[in-house]
Simulated scan of single mutants.
Amino acid sequence: MSDRSVFVTGGNRGIGLAIARAFAEQGDRVAVSHRDGPAPEGVLGVRCDVTDAASLDAAFAEIERAHGPVDVLVANAGITHDKLAVQMTDQDFTVPLDTNLVGTFRVARRAVPGMLANRWGRMVFVSSVMGTLGSPGQANYAASKSGLIGLARSLAHELGGRGITVNVVAPGFISTDMSAGVSDRRREELISMTALRRAGTPEEVASVVRFLAGEEASYVTGGLIPVGGGLGMGS
């Protein structure tokens, strides 16, 4: 199962970078999208904005020339724009949805033709436990992340007959640059709500994503897999 064409959106840092490295370490041909900064060493970096269909087409064309059609898609690109709902404008609400949810749909739609032709494919969408748990000031983010579950399960029904699986991982409180901006009070609150009483690592998320993209998970589709140390369990 090595030497596949893998595309990780938002793969130049944090969870996305750990996922890209996990696939590269096992011999896959890995491409990552990034909007700014350099691409990580050892992978193909493509400039790409998931809110722009033309940008996505150009990125896929570059990947397909270098690595062939995408076999494994990991939709990880995401943003936050926190604000209490009473203060949130329509634009404040819709901008994260356009990246996190609609952007994932655009990427998946572009990957489908190659997977259909090969009658094999793996899609993994990176959500968040906040998508089911909810969080103050994150109505937009939580809505975008919960929407990935319905999107994945609909695609799982549509594509399963062609050997394509679609699953969702929902990380909890993970030590990344994004979580570093959380206040000490909120950090303590989240840790106290986590059964394992610690933050997770990007590598722990990456190992679950890599499992879902392998043959060991060939009968897993439409799944929502929490990687949160027990944060929000049962929600």
Rank of each mutant, 00 (worst) to 15 (best):
G11M: 05
N12K: 06
R13H: 06
L17T: 07
A20H: 13
A22C: 08
F23Y: 15
F23V: 14
A24K: 15
G27R: 09
D28G: 14
D28P: 13
S33V: 04
H34S: 02
D36G: 09
G37L: 05
P38V: 03
P40L: 10
G42Y: 14
V43Y: 11
R47T: 04
D49L: 02
V50C: 10
A53M: 05
A54M: 05
A61I: 02
I63H: 11
E64H: 02
R65Q: 11
D71W: 02
V74I: 00
Q87G: 00
Q87D: 11
D90R: 11
F93N: 00
F93C: 00
V102Y: 08
V107D: 05
V107Y: 03
R109Q: 14
V112K: 01
M115G: 03
L116D: 00
W120L: 03
G121S: 01
R122D: 01
R122P: 09
S127T: 15
S128A: 09
V129L: 08
M130H: 11
G131V: 06
T132F: 06
L133H: 07
P136W: 07
Y141G: 00
Y141L: 01
A142P: 10
A143P: 10
S144H: 04
G147K: 01
G147Q: 02
G150Q: 09
L151A: 09
R153W: 06
S154K: 03
L155H: 06
L159Q: 08
R162Y: 15
G163Y: 15
N167V: 04
V169N: 06
V169S: 07
T176H: 04
S179L: 10
S183G: 12
E189P: 02
S192V: 11
A195T: 12
A195V: 14
P202I: 07
E204K: 08
F211W: 15
G214E: 12
G222S: 13
L224Q: 13
V227Q: 11
G229A: 14
G230S: 14
